[in-house]
Amino acid sequence: MKRRPGRFAVLLTLCLAVTLTFLTLPIVAIFLDSSPAELIDSLGEEGALDALWLSLKTTAISITIILLVGTPAAYLLATRSFRGKAFVVTLVELPLVLPPAVAGIALLSAVGPSGILGGTVEAAGVELTFETAGVVVALTFVASPFYVRQAMAAFASVDGVMLDASRTLGASEARGFLRVMIPVALPGLVAGTALALGRALGEFGATLMFAGSFQGITQTVPLAIYDRFSTEFDAALALSAVLVAVSAAILLSVKLVHGSEVLGGAPR
């Protein structure tokens, strides 16, 4: 005899169906509206490959910076308690809730040519506005909180006993961090990386306002899509499809790596 599903189960299913439809329909539409031939054509179009390459390059640089600096920072925030920690964490998370336009304005007023640190940046011989470096700054600014937040949660959930054990065995904290904390927290770190990657790849407003839009230098895929939207809708659509595919591929491969790590390092 089959048990009838309860009302609550029905409600859950209903909500999932609505969520799924709402989230996937627009993405499915991108692919239904463009043929594979158009997709390939659009990649051959001047500027599209430049944009794709630039997006991948800037995202990779920005993610590398985020991982190198963000991981130890998140570890510190997760494992120490100090006065004003809640405030510090809030500050780190703040860019999460900033609209892209605000991020653009904020970057301009901080390190733009007439920003508060504009002179210092210029004196150091660094050019950000209208340069690829500016795109990296914009991506790093908007994407890093996604990673740091997730990494903090991952480190915080690691059982302190493990680290204590490694210390009892004579390992330094740095060694414990590298050999124990990072491997154990890895699934969380990978998830955070995936989020930050997605955010960086899709960044639009802050890049446009802070770095401008120029093919091969600052025009990332989202900017190239926007540039084509009005006059070449099909090309914009095709480029959007490419971005969706690339993002999905990155997300998927990150998840696969994460999966194999978990399988490989699972309880023995």
Binding site: L208, S213, Y226
Partner: peptide, 9 residues
């Protein structure tokens, strides 16, 4: 150095 999407930019 930049091709802006509108005059405001």
């Amino acid at each position: 150095v930049s091709n802006e999407p509108d005059v405001k930019g």
